[in-house]
Computed example of a mutant assay.
Amino acid sequence: MEITALVAHLRQRCPSYGGRIAGGIDFDAVANSEQLHRPSAYVISTGDQATKNDVQNGVRQEITDQFDVIVVLDTRDERGQQAVDLLHGLRKELWRALVGWKPTDEYEFIEYGGGELIVINRARVIYRYSFVAEFQLGRNSKDEPAETWHELELDGLPPFTGADFDMDCIDPADPNLQRPGPDGRIEAKFSGDVTP
Rank of each mutant, 00 (worst) to 15 (best):
residue 145 P to S: 02
residue 166 D to K: 15
residue 72 V to I: 06
residue 83 A to S: 12
residue 164 D to L: 11
residue 68 D to L: 02
residue 17 Y to A: 15
residue 74 D to W: 04
residue 46 T to E: 03
residue 81 Q to G: 06
residue 136 Q to V: 15
residue 129 Y to L: 15
residue 9 H to Y: 04
residue 154 L to Q: 14
residue 58 G to M: 01
residue 161 T to W: 03
residue 179 R to P: 00
residue 94 L to N: 06
residue 123 A to E: 11
residue 96 R to H: 09
residue 142 K to W: 11
residue 51 T to I: 10
residue 30 V to H: 02
residue 101 W to S: 01
residue 113 G to M: 07
residue 171 D to V: 15
residue 85 D to M: 13
residue 126 I to V: 15
residue 49 Q to N: 12
residue 68 D to C: 02
residue 50 A to Q: 13
residue 183 D to F: 07
residue 94 L to E: 07
residue 117 L to P: 07
residue 60 R to H: 07
residue 11 R to H: 06
residue 38 R to E: 06
residue 57 N to S: 14
residue 47 G to C: 09
residue 65 D to N: 13
residue 68 D to M: 01
residue 99 V to H: 01
residue 75 T to A: 14
residue 176 N to P: 00
residue 175 P to Q: 06
residue 130 S to R: 07
residue 25 I to L: 14
residue 24 G to R: 04
residue 163 A to L: 12
residue 80 G to P: 02
residue 15 P to Q: 08
residue 174 D to V: 06
residue 86 L to V: 13
residue 79 R to Y: 03
residue 58 G to H: 04
residue 74 D to E: 09
residue 166 D to A: 15
residue 72 V to K: 00
residue 185 R to W: 05
residue 32 N to C: 11
residue 152 L to H: 13
residue 192 G to W: 04
residue 89 G to K: 03
residue 44 I to V: 15
residue 116 E to S: 13
residue 106 E to A: 12
residue 164 D to K: 12
residue 5 A to G: 13
residue 9 H to D: 06
residue 89 G to D: 15
residue 174 D to N: 15
residue 68 D to E: 08
residue 156 G to Y: 04
residue 107 Y to W: 08
residue 144 E to V: 09
residue 129 Y to A: 08
residue 185 R to D: 04
residue 139 R to K: 12
residue 9 H to R: 14
residue 156 G to T: 13
residue 127 Y to M: 00
residue 192 G to A: 12
residue 74 D to S: 13
residue 58 G to D: 09
residue 107 Y to F: 15
residue 181 G to D: 06
residue 74 D to R: 07
residue 30 V to A: 14
residue 31 A to M: 10
residue 17 Y to W: 11
residue 186 I to F: 03
residue 56 Q to I: 11
residue 194 V to E: 07
residue 179 R to N: 12
residue 73 L to P: 04
residue 157 L to T: 09
residue 192 G to I: 14
residue 48 D to I: 10
residue 57 N to Y: 08
residue 39 P to S: 03
residue 61 Q to Y: 00
residue 146 A to M: 02
residue 170 I to G: 09
residue 17 Y to M: 14
residue 98 L to S: 03
residue 150 H to E: 12
residue 121 N to A: 04
residue 189 K to S: 12
residue 54 D to L: 07
residue 149 W to K: 15
residue 71 V to A: 01
residue 112 Y to R: 07
residue 54 D to H: 12
residue 177 L to K: 12
residue 61 Q to V: 11
residue 7 V to F: 01
residue 169 C to W: 11
residue 158 P to Q: 07
residue 50 A to E: 13
residue 28 D to W: 07
residue 182 P to V: 05
residue 41 A to Y: 01
residue 155 D to N: 10
residue 161 T to P: 01
residue 65 D to T: 04
